[in-house]
C-alpha cells in the first residue's frame, strides 16, 4: 500500500500528505489502535447491554391477560424505565452525552481517564441501539419456537437463553455488525473528551503543521480502510453463519412407513 501511495504521490499535494503521514505515523497508528479498541469494546459491551435490555423489553412489551396486577405493574415499570434509557441515548447526540457525562461525573468524581470514559460512553450508547435491535430480533423469532421449548418443560429463562437468543442474534447479525462499523466512524466525536482517536490525532497534527488538508485526508483514508476491511470480515462471518455445516446423510429420501423398531 505504501508503494502505491508513494507512486501516486509525485511532487505536489500527495507527496506532502505522504510525508505528513510518515512523520506522524506512530501517532496515526496508535490512534488506529485506540479507535478500533474503543469501537470493538463498545460493540461487545453494547451487545451485552442490548441482550439484557432488549430481552427485558421483549418480555415486558406485552402483558398477558393471565397475569396478576403486581406482575402487570412490574412489567410496565421495567418497560418504561428501559424505554427511557433507550429513548435518551438514541435521541441525543453521543457528543452531548460524552461532554455531559465526562465533565460532570467521570472526570471530576470517578477520575476516569479519557479512554476509560470513552469506552463507557460508547458502550452505553451502543447498548441503547442494540437493545432495539435485539428486541425486534427476539420478537421476530417464531412463536412456535417458544411453544416447542415450553412443551418440553423449559423455563422462560432457559427458553430465552438456549432457543430464542441464539436465533435472534443470528437473525440480527447484519445489524449488530453494522453497529461496529458505525462505532469505528462515530467514535470520532469522543475527541471532545480528549480521547486520542484518529480524529483527535488529525486535529493535533493540523495544529502543528497549520494545514487541514493533509491530516484529514490521511484519517479519511484510514477510516475508509478500517470500515471496508471490517465490513468484508463481517460479510464473511455472516456467510459462515448462514451456511452452518451440518452433515446430511447421503440418502435424503424420507424413511418409509412402518419403520418403527421396538
Amino acid at each position: 500500500m505504501e508503494y502505491i501511495l508513494m507512486a501516486a504521490a509525485g511532487d505536489g499535494f500527495l507527496s506532502k500528505t505522504w510525508n505528513v503521514f510518515v512523520k506522524y505515523q506512530s501517532l496515526f497508528l496508535g490512534a488506529i489502535q485506540s479507535t478500533l479498541l474503543v469501537a470493538f469494546i463498545g460493540t461487545i459491551v453494547g451487545l451485552l447491554i442490548g441482550l439484557v435490555i432488549g430481552g427485558l423489553r421483549a418480555i415486558t412489551s406485552h402483558q398477558d391477560h393471565n397475569q396478576k396486577m403486581g406482575a402487570k405493574l412490574l412489567y410496565k415499570l421495567i418497560y418504561g424505565i428501559t424505554g427511557i434509557y433507550v429513548g435518551i441515548f438514541r435521541g441525543t447526540p453521543m457528543m452531548v452525552q460524552a461532554m455531559f457525562l465526562y465533565y460532570t461525573f467521570f472526570a471530576p468524581i470517578f477520575h476516569w481517564s479519557p479512554i476509560t470514559s470513552a469506552m463507557v460512553i460508547i458502550s452505553v450508547n451502543t447498548g441503547a441501539y442494540m437493545a432495539e435491535i435485539m428486541r425486534s430480533g427476539i420478537q421476530s423469532v417464531d412463536n412456535g419456537q417458544l411453544e416447542g421449548a415450553r412443551s418440553i418443560g423449559m423455563t422462560s429463562f432457559q427458553t430465552m437463553l438456549y432457543i430464542v437468543l441464539p436465533q435472534a442474534i443470528k437473525n440480527s447479525f447484519p445489524s449488530i455488525g453494522n453497529e461496529f462499523v458505525v462505532n469505528i466512524k462515530d467514535s470520532c466525536v469522543l475527541n471532545c473528551i480528549q480521547f486520542s482517536e484518529l480524529f483527535f490525532v488529525a486535529k493535533s497534527v493540523q495544529g502543528s503543521i497549520f494545514s487541514y488538508a493533509e491530516p484529514f485526508l490521511i484519517v479519511g483514508i484510514l477510516y475508509l480502510i478500517l470500515t471496508l476491511v471490517t465490513s468484508s470480515i463481517l460479510g464473511l462471518i455472516e456467510k459462515r453463519i448462514n451456511h452452518q455445516k451440518s452433515s446430511y446423510p447421503a440418502s435424503i429420501s424420507a424413511p418409509q412407513s412402518g419403520v418403527l423398531k421396538g
Binding site: D142, G144, Q145, E147, G148, A149, I163, P166, Q167
Partner: peptide, 10 residues
C-alpha cells in the same frame, strides 16, 4: 406434538 413441528431451528 404440534401441527407445525416447532423443532428448534438453531
Amino acid at each position: 406434538v404440534f401441527q407445525n413441528f416447532n423443532l428448534f431451528h438453531n
